[in-house]
Simulated assay, not measured.
Amino acid sequence: MEILAFGVQSDEKPLIERAFDGHCEVRCLDVFLTEDTAPIAAGHEIVSSSVNAELGPRVLEILAAGGTRMIAQRSTGFNNIDLDAAGRLGMTVARVSYYSPYSVAEFAWTLGMAVNRRVVRAANRTRDFDFRLDGLMGRDMHGRTAGVLGTGKIGEAFTRIAHGFGMRLLGWDVAENPACMELGMKYVPKQQLLAESDLVTLHLPLMPETQHLIDAAALRSMKDDAILVNSSRGGLVDTRALVAELREGRFTGVGLDVYEAEAGLFFVDRSLEAVDDDTLARLVTFPNVLVTSHQAYYTEDAVAQIVDTTVRNVLDYLAGRRSENVLVPALARS
């Protein structure tokens, strides 16, 4: 049996091929799974998708018509998949429920410190042999307040780093994490966290309840000199509202590894094309904003775990086994 994997990065390909070796054949494609590319999967019972795949009802119908019965998503998030439609079509859907939380937490700190200490601006200057310090002043994180929205595994890892910096810790989540509380975190209402934090970081899943969690009102409640970091899901932040606040000269820095309209933009080279997303185009012009390409998870350790779990999900499906990674229950294979 051949597995068809969509949206595979060049660094990821050898890991996928090595992990599947001895189990199944795998063909890796660099194109993403969309309505236009879905017909390529015809004749493949199992398809592996990336986080930026567009798996709405129409795409799932095309896949099902071509014989696909199982989708193995190579990510934790699954807001890009219409699970109800997959269930109606008799398709099994599995994800990667866990991988290294340190990859994302460490990168979130990378973004926060890069905008705080003006690292990109400094690097661009020194390439032109401009070694002035004007405009490069940052702030100590020690003694300041970190607000963590979402204190699961990644939020906890971020909190441990913040504790190492000697920061005051505020948290907000539906459930309190005892490990974070042992580090001194105080759980407070979201409004209080936003108002008191010098650095706000997001580590939440995207769902209807969290869509635009950071909206215009939330942004206005933050300190004028706060730092905002989002390495989770782009839809957590109302980007238009963020741009409006940035135009007013607010925030010391904003570090974004995700963008709410990133599908079709991120993970591909658009450098020679005209990008028609005016919001993103405006966002990247602000000197205190750093946008990266959804790479927080992209470490050897995390990607290896993602690939290994994907292989296990496929083997579980073929054997008729269930695991905590299954989002839409497996049906008996004919």
Rank of each mutant, 00 (worst) to 15 (best):
V51L: 11
E25I: 07
R160W: 00
L265D: 04
A244K: 13
T285D: 13
K13C: 06
C28S: 08
S100V: 02
D276I: 08
L256T: 10
A319D: 12
R118P: 01
N116Q: 02
L204A: 05
N52E: 05
T110G: 14
E324Y: 07
D225S: 11
A304R: 13
S50D: 06
S50V: 01
V307Y: 09
A296I: 03
E2H: 13
G155I: 02
A157S: 13
E45Q: 14
D30H: 15
L63F: 09
F158Q: 06
R74K: 05
K223Q: 06
D316T: 12
L280Y: 14
T299I: 08
H163D: 08
Y98I: 10
V243G: 05
G147N: 10
A261R: 10
D238G: 07
V47F: 02
D140G: 03
S271D: 03
R74L: 02
A105V: 07
S48V: 07
M113I: 10
E54H: 13
G147C: 06
D11F: 15
M207W: 11
E54S: 12
I40K: 13
E248K: 14
D238A: 10
A274K: 15
Q211H: 10
S232K: 06
R95V: 05
S103N: 10
L63Y: 06
V229Y: 01
L29D: 01
I62Q: 09
E182H: 11
L265R: 13
A65L: 02
F266Q: 05
A274G: 15
S97L: 02
R322S: 12
T37S: 14
P101G: 12
L4V: 09
I154T: 13
F286T: 07
D301A: 15
F286R: 07
H23T: 12
D316L: 09
I62L: 14
V328E: 06
R88M: 06
G67H: 07
L199M: 14
L170P: 08
H44N: 13
L219M: 00
R144E: 03
S48L: 08
N79G: 10
A19K: 09
G320A: 12
S293I: 00
P189H: 11
V8T: 09
G253L: 00
Y98N: 15
R88F: 00
R247K: 15
T292D: 08
C180A: 13
R321G: 03
E260Q: 12
E12P: 03
T92K: 09
S197I: 04
V314T: 11
N52S: 03
A5I: 04
G171N: 03
I214W: 08
T279L: 14
S221A: 10
A53N: 01
C28M: 08
L246E: 02
M181W: 11
V148R: 01
N79P: 01
A330I: 12
R27F: 07
G67M: 07
R240Y: 05
L170E: 07
G150M: 08
K13H: 04
I16H: 00
G264P: 04
V200A: 05
A332E: 15
L4A: 01
A226N: 00
R322H: 14
D198A: 10
A72E: 07
V289K: 01
E25P: 15
Q73E: 09
T110Q: 15
R18T: 09
D257E: 11
L199K: 10
Y102I: 11
H203P: 00
V311I: 09
A64K: 12
K13Y: 00
L327P: 11
